[in-house]
């Protein structure tokens, strides 16, 4: 358990002795040696400390073999899809229109493997990976008994939570990029590259297509913001990392099933995966932005609700582990 924070966490034992000390407002009053001095200096110090905390978190998350395994699985999916398309499609387009989105276009243009892979991974693989990392974020610390050491540090619980969330968000972006880049590499290796045919029928240059692919990766990453916040909240509820991950993934599966039941169409626009496939709108000309904007708004709403719920939980919780 060689935690970077454990070295930094050398303040007073605020976690158990005075439960209020770690709370948001309490963090405003510098009560530790390094917090003393002029307000400006303390703010700078706190910002630096936050940055250090954030970097430490990133290092911990991305050095874990578990994270590496998750990213490895995500990177393997485009390779598998690419190889399957390469060796199974023999010219005939029988059954085109079935299967994952854009898969019919992959043989013409390897860039479409990026879109296919994102369409394949977005419903389950990507959010599951995010759910694992988010569910582990706070509960993992509690599980390992390191949470209280983090909380005695002068940063305070609010900042710790935001740092954790920022780390999960970085993971959302990295996971999406891993899928996209693996797909790009596989597509370039197995299929021809060239001008891109949009789904509305126009043909644009490869550069334009790559820009659109990048924008689509961004939209996909933003789509994961909601499940990340949900996982963070679940993670603050329990001391068992496994339980938090399982609950987050379970919620994801449940919501995806609810989204597939036609009788529930009235509530479906409020489920966080509802607009996930809106990224395909970036492949139309003239572009349609409304669904992408609605997706972003819905994700922001989920993030606001669940991060504030996680904050309410963590800052008032009695941390014993």
């Amino acid at each position: 358990m060689s935690r970077a924070e454990a070295d930094v966490a050398t303040g007073t034992d605020a976690g158990a002795g005075a439960p209020a000390a770690g709370a948001g407002p309490a963090a405003e009053t510098p009560g530790t040696p390094e917090g003393s001095g002029t307000p400006t200096a303390s703010r700078t110090a706190r910002a630096l400390w936050s940055l250090g905390l954030f970097r430490g978190e990133l290092r911990i998350v991305f050095r874990r073999w578990r994270t590496a395994a998750l990213l490895g699985v995500l990177a393997a999916i485009p390779v598998l899809v690419g190889i399957a398309v390469k060796f199974q499609t023999r010219g005939d387009r029988q059954g085109a229109g079935d299967g994952p989105a854009f898969i019919a276009d992959v043989t013409n243009n390897g860039l479409f493997l990026v879109f296919t892979s994102l369409a394949v991974t977005l419903p389950f693989f990507l959010p599951m990976a995010v759910g694992v990392v988010a569910g582990d974020s706070v509960a993992g610390e509690a599980n390992a008994g390191t949470l209280r050491y983090l909380l005695v540090a002068p940063a305070g619980r609010t900042r710790l939570l935001l740092t954790k969330y920022a780390t999960v968000l970085v993971f959302c972006g990295v996971a999406t990029l891993v899928v996209a880049l693996a797909a790009l590499a596989t597509g370039a290796a197995l299929f021809p590259f060239g001008d891109v045919t949009l789904i509305s029928g126009q043909t644009v240059s490869l550069g334009d297509g790559l820009l659109r692919a990048l924008a689509i990766a961004g939209v996909v990453a933003v789509s994961l913001v909601g499940i990340a916040a949900l996982g963070l909240f679940v993670s603050t509820l329990t001391d068992s990392a496994i339980a938090a991950m399982a609950t987050t993934v379970g919620v994801l599966l449940t919501v995806q099933i609810l989204g597939a039941v036609p009788q529930l169409h009235a509530v479906q626009p409020y489920l966080f995966p509802h607009y996930w496939m809106s990224f395909a709108d970036l492949l139309r000309a003239p572009a349609i932005g409304s669904a992408i904007a609605r997706n972003a708004g819905l994700q922001a709403l989920y993030a606001a609700v669940f991060v504030s719920a996680a904050w309410a939980r963590l800052t008032t919780r009695d941390v014993t582990a």
Binding site: A96, A104, I199, S200, G201
Partner: peptide
Amino acid sequence: MWAYDSGANS
């Protein structure tokens, strides 16, 4: 008159 179906690329 053109019609394009992106799902089937036809």
